[in-house]
Every structure is written in structure tokens, then in C-alpha cells.
């Protein structure tokens, strides 16, 4: 502590280390959850509820990918939402000005965000902990300022409207009660989650965690900090950018609000409330926070206050977030079952 420039961010070994849960168990749980989600539109007919679920899926993709760089990587990347915003604007500009096919533009959103993530990695390679916050945050502000100042192309603070949506053969995307968008969003979340879980369970993911937990030792064992950090950020960017592109396609517009502090705060609370370094935690928290927020729509100004209070209480009692809470609850049930048996 005496001669450290900044206190190193001490992190305890992650509860979910690669290979802890047998992958078969995880795959079964994943399949069940997927089945439940895929059948939801059959029971939920109204457009509004489906809209809420689509937003949950988008937030879940962004939050769980942030968990990869922030939770697993230990990189304080505060420019994550800029990657989302880059996806939004890449899609909007490519479809609207270039006339690219929306599906190709959706993919391009992910690719461009990945390239941006690699570019932002370069200045932070030498930096540690809290300093990364400033550079990544500065990167986000820089992107926002460029979007605002190039108003002839990007629409500036006015944003872009009438962005082309996605299509599915001759299916009418607008009058189907958001049926098609629901499944596209779900598909995006599933693809992203499988990618993230495979990544963090792989040797590569183990290396990322090793560098976070004990940088000096990991480097001395031959791990390249530069390469791993770049891979981590690039990997967390692709689906984030695609989620941004999908968001633009779904909302049919693009605005600089996506770079704002309020959205970043919401997504960050999802990552941390869910429990960092779990991937699933961020997804669960996206669901809880979004649905909880919608359920309290009548409370007006009290709504954000109740949400804030809830976050504080959960973080104080269960610092490892909702996943920690679920684990503790599951543990208690298991003990009781053993006792009765």
C-alpha cells in the first residue's frame, strides 16, 4: 500500500471459475431458460409487454458483454456504451445513407464496434485501474462530440429518424405485435450469451481472469497483457455493437441519448446488481430492473428512488449481487433438504 500509485483493485477468486459447473448442467439450464423465453409470446399477447421484453433482451446483451470486460477482465471500461452508440449510428448511417441491406448493416454494426474497441485499447495498454476510466470515458465523449459536430451527416443533437427497420421475407414487421422483433432480439441474446459463456469457460477466458487476479504472476507465466486486453475488449464489443444496431432498427431512430450518463448508469447497475463475473447475473438483473421499473410506472418520481434504494440494499447485504443472493438462497434450501432427508 505504501508506494502504490493507485491502490490495485483487489479481487477475490471468482466463484464461477472455468470448469466449476459441468458444462452439461449449464447447457441443460440454458436450454430450459431458452424454451421458457421462446414460448413467452404465445402467452403474452399484448404489444407493450413484448416491447418491455425486447428492451430487456437488448439491455441484457449490453450488460452481459460489459461484464466480460469489467467483471472478468477487470478493465474499467467506461466507454462500453459508446460501443453500443457506435452500433446504433453505424446501422443508421449505413442503411439510410449508403442503402446497405439492414441485415448486413446489423452485422456491420458489430464489426465496426469491434474495430473501435481495438482502437480504444491502444491508449489504455499502459494504464491501470482507475486511469482507464478517464481514457475510456474520454473516448465515449469524443465519439459523442464527433456525432454532434457532424450534424450534416448524423443529424447532430436532433438525431436521425426514419431509420430502415429489419425485414423477414414478406412478413409484416410492424403489424405483428412485435412478434418478429421479439425473436430476433431473443436470438441476439442467445448468440451473445453462448459466445460469452464459451469464451469465459475457455483457456482464453481463464487467462483473462488470471491477468485480473494476479497480473505479475500471469505475465511471468508468459501471458501477454496487451494481447489479452485487446481480445477481451474486442470480444465484448461485437455483440454490444450488434445490440446497438438492432436497437436502431427496432426504434427506427438514432439519438445521442445513447451516449448519455443515464443509460450508462442503468446498464452499470445491471452489471453490478446481477453480480460481476457471472454473465448470467447481468442478464437476470436486466430482467429484474427493467420489469421492476415498468411495474412501478405509476409511482412517478418515487420509482427511481425505490430502485436506487433496492440497489443499495442488495449491494450492502449481497456484495456479489443477485447471483450471490440466489446462491445463498439455494444453499439454505439444500441444507434444509439434506436435514429433512
Amino acid at each position: 500500500m505504501t508506494d502504490a500509485v493507485a491502490p490495485a483493485i483487489p479481487t477475490r477468486a471468482v466463484p464461477v471459475s472455468p470448469g466449476r459447473t459441468p458444462w452439461k448442467h449449464e447447457a441443460i439450464g440454458f436450454a430450459i431458460a431458452l424454451l421458457v423465453l421462446a414460448l413467452l409470446p404465445l402467452f403474452i399477447g399484448d404489444t407493450y409487454s413484448r416491447h418491455v421484453l425486447i428492451m430487456v433482451f437488448i439491455y441484457a446483451v449490453v450488460a452481459s458483454n460489459w461484464d466480460l470486460s469489467l467483471g472478468y477482465g477487470g478493465v474499467f471500461n467506461f466507454g462500453h456504451l459508446a460501443l453500443f452508440g457506435i452500433g446504433v449510428y453505424a446501422y443508421s448511417l449505413l442503411t439510410k445513407l449508403v442503402g446497405l441491406d439492414p441485415w448486413l448493416a446489423l452485422f456491420a454494426g458489430g464489426v465496426i464496434a469491434t474495430v473501435a474497441a481495438v482502437l480504444v485499447t491502444i491508449p489504455i495498454l499502459r494504464l491501470k485501474g482507475i486511469y482507464i476510466i478517464l481514457v475510456t470515458f474520454g473516448f465515449a465523449q469524443l465519439v459523442m462530440q464527433i456525432v454532434i459536430s457532424q450534424s450534416a451527416i448524423t443529424g447532430g443533437t436532433q438525431g436521425l429518424v426514419r431509420v430502415p427497420g429489419l425485414y423477414w421475407f414478406d412478413h409484416n414487421m410492424i403489424r405483428d405485435g412485435k412478434f418478429a422483433y421479439f425473436y430476433i432480439a431473443l436470438g441476439l441474446l442467445v448468440a451473445s450469451t453462448i459466445f460469452l459463456r464459451v469464451f469465459v469457460r475457455s483457456r482464453l477466458g481463464a487467462g483473462v481472469v488470471a491477468l485480473r487476479d494476479n497480473e505479475e504472476y500471469a505475465i511471468s507465466r508468459g501471458m501477454s497483457l496487451v494481447r489479452q486486453r485487446m481480445i477481451t475488449l474486442a470480444a465484448s464489443a461485437f455483440f454490444t455493437g450488434m445490440a446497438g444496431a438492432f436497437y436502431a432498427a427496432y426504434q427506427r431512430n438514432a439519438s445521442v441519448d445513447v451516449f448519455g450518463m443515464s443509460l450508462a448508469t442503468i446498464i452499470l447497475s445491471m452489471v453490478l446488481l446481477g453480480g460481476a463475473s457471472t454473465i448470467y447475473g447481468a442478464i437476470i438483473a436486466s430482467f429484474v430492473l427493467t420489469v421492476f421499473g415498468e411495474a412501478m410506472a405509476d409511482f412517478g418520481a418515487w420509482r427511481p428512488m425505490i430502485t436506487a434504494l433496492l440497489i443499495i440494499v442488495v449491494m450492502l447485504v449481497y456484495p456479489s449481487g443477485l447471483v450471490g443472493m440466489i446462491r445463498a438462497g439455494w444453499g439454505a434450501i439444500a441444507v434444509r433438504m439434506k436435514r429433512t432427508a
Binding site: 483493485i9 477475490r12 452499470l268 453490478l272 430502485t307 436506487a308 440497489i311 449491494m315
Partner: peptide
Amino acid sequence: PNIVLVVVITTLAAGSLIENGALT
């Protein structure tokens, strides 16, 4: 162990609480 990250979120939440309280 992860105090830096957790305090980010608790102070953000407390800030949101005070801000919305002031609004009310």
C-alpha cells in the same frame, strides 16, 4: 475485496436517490 466497483454503484444509487428526492 471489490470495494472500488461496489462503491461506484452504491454512490451512484445514493446520488440517484438524493437527486430524485430533490426533484420531489
